[in-house]
Design a protein around this nucleic acid. Structure first.
Lengths: 212, 212
DNA sequence: TAGATTGTTAATCGATTAACAATC
DNA sequence: TAGATTGTTAATCGATTAACAATC
């Protein structure tokens, strides 16, 4: 098995998709599947599937294919779902509330332990098993509970001010919904950006150019 | 200028980022910028920036660089913001409501004209200038107003049932928040997926493997 | 004019696909 | 054993970077 750091981002970003489709097969009661069959379901080439999986080890068997239960479990381990990250959410506006409510943190290796906001009208409300807390208490909270991941659902300017503070407090990973580019200044941080408006702009281009 | 269809997806997906950074420069009052300066701000190489922009035409001037106002406006045109797409939102749960409230549709070439749900408790509520309407009225509405884009904020199974119906009714573009893979069955549709849980799983992997 | 910076071609790099020997 | 399908190497394809002549 190659060292994980050698695995390219292209491959890593396909892992969740494998996990989703295998989960589906699992629920359907499918026992084994070949890279060929999986390629039809997922819209990848069989070659790519075998290549991708072999970055992490040999999970298949010649002449048989892949055992669905075993492969699903293996990918869950690779993604690191059994190593829980203590997580905080910053910003409990519309988007933050939707994220907190909608997301299955527990099943994905995260444990939401705190929600913060600066709006007095929101502070004190209950959200996904957490009391929305004044952002002023962020330092105290982190020193006590040592979260490693932060979900950033605040406007750009607020994110700009928060990022350094969060890195300082030991946050290693960011699920970033703001337009502030955390990675540019904090190179060591792991940042997954969800730029909704970028996605919408791309859709605009494509609707105008791909449908003729 | 090459035909748009020749422009690769990699380039298209960077356009919104250019637009965002140029908008920022615009607000800061910066008049001109070189690909070198922009590369430092954005974290792309200067070479890539020039290469990308030249897919759409020569917007710069040797020895000068790029005029910020002009380039910003040009990218807005390329993205197609001046050609408004009539848009409907399906699913007014937590996520749908956040999307409807949070998103600047008007500034991005979209016009939200209808919101649909099947939950009687939600139908009739007011959301982003629309009355939440019973999904049963989808056909009548589309035949009258001819929307071209649908935002899908419903669970996987509902999306699976809806997709064909929407394509049938003339929807060309999908902003898809569900885990149903619309493209697999409807090849002609333009689909932008926002797979939040995939993004979170990727973060899980990276936090576990990139921070040692 | 001299300096700067683009537009564009060529070189490099990485990712995907094809092919096939190994093996269940 | 024969058939199927993997793991893996080699070939192809596409995207990024480097270089530089054109030109403002």
């Amino acid at each position: 098995m190659p060292k994980n750091s050698e695995v390219s981002m292209s491959v890593v970003r396909r892992l969740p998709r494998y996990y989703r489709f295998l989960g589906e097969l699992l629920r359907t009661g499918v026992e084994r599947i070949s890279s060929r069959e999986l390629s039809v379901l997922m819209g990848f080439t069989a070659s790519q599937i075998r290549q991708d999986l072999n970055c992490f080890g040999g999970f298949g068997q010649q002449g048989y294919g892949y055992n669905v239960v075993y492969l699903h479990e293996a990918i869950s381990k690779i993604l690191g779902f059994d190593n829980t990250q203590e997580t905080i959410l910053i910003g409990a506006g519309n988007l933050g509330r939707a994220i907190a409510t909608y997301t299955d943190f527990k099943g994905r290796g995260f444990n939401l332990i705190g929600v913060f906001d600066n709006n007095p009208a929101i502070i004190g409300q209950r959200l996904s098993n957490c009391d929305v807390t004044d952002i002023a208490e962020l330092e105290d909270f982190c020193k006590e509970h040592h979260p490693t991941v932060a979900i950033v659902c605040v406007p750009k300017t607020a994110a700009e001010q928060l990022a350094g503070r969060l890195v300082e407090l030991g946050i290693k990973g960011f699920w970033n919904f703001s337009h502030y580019d955390i990675s540019l200044k904090y190179k060591q941080a792991v940042v997954e950006n969800v730029h909704l408006s970028d996605s919408l702009m791309t859709l605009c281009y494509r609707v105008n150019n791909e449908t003729e």
